[in-house]
């Protein structure tokens, strides 16, 4: 299992559109991918789970990948979270 912590930086947090991006990335991998916030942990392939996590600005998420392609999965998941941090630019328009 590999993992990494990420702090949500965009103003609106993980909303519907960012959640879509996360799911679209996660489902590409065979590994189990979980996101944990405080004591709650959800499946990153579930959009409802992500929405229910209330990942607002400033919250710390632990991204956990477990499986044969876990390293690659973690890298892509980190990238998608970084991309989401850019979202403010667009949502402010």
């Amino acid at each position: 299992m590999v993992s990494k912590t990420f702090t949500i930086q965009n103003k609106y947090g993980i909303h519907a559109r960012p959640a879509r991006l996360i799911v679209e990335t996660a489902v590409q991998f065979k590994s189990e991918i979980h996101l944990a916030k405080n004591n709650e942990e959800i499946d990153a392939k579930s959009i409802m789970g992500i929405l229910m996590l209330e990942a607002s600005k400033g919250s710390e998420l632990l991204i956990k990948c477990d499986g044969e392609d876990e390293k690659e999965a973690l890298q892509h998941m980190t990238e998608v979270f970084e991309k989401i941090s850019e979202l403010t630019e667009w949502e402010e328009v």
């Binding site: 609106y12 947090g13 909303h15 519907a16 409802m48 929405l51 229910m52 209330e54 607002s56 600005k57």
Partner: peptide
């Protein structure tokens, strides 16, 4: 149940998602 969870979130920005 999901709607009431969303409505109960501290960050009000999440409340708009109940519409969906």
């Amino acid at each position: 149940n999901y709607i009431s969870k969303l409505k109960g979130m501290q960050d009000e920005r999440f409340h708009t998602r109940t519409t969906d």
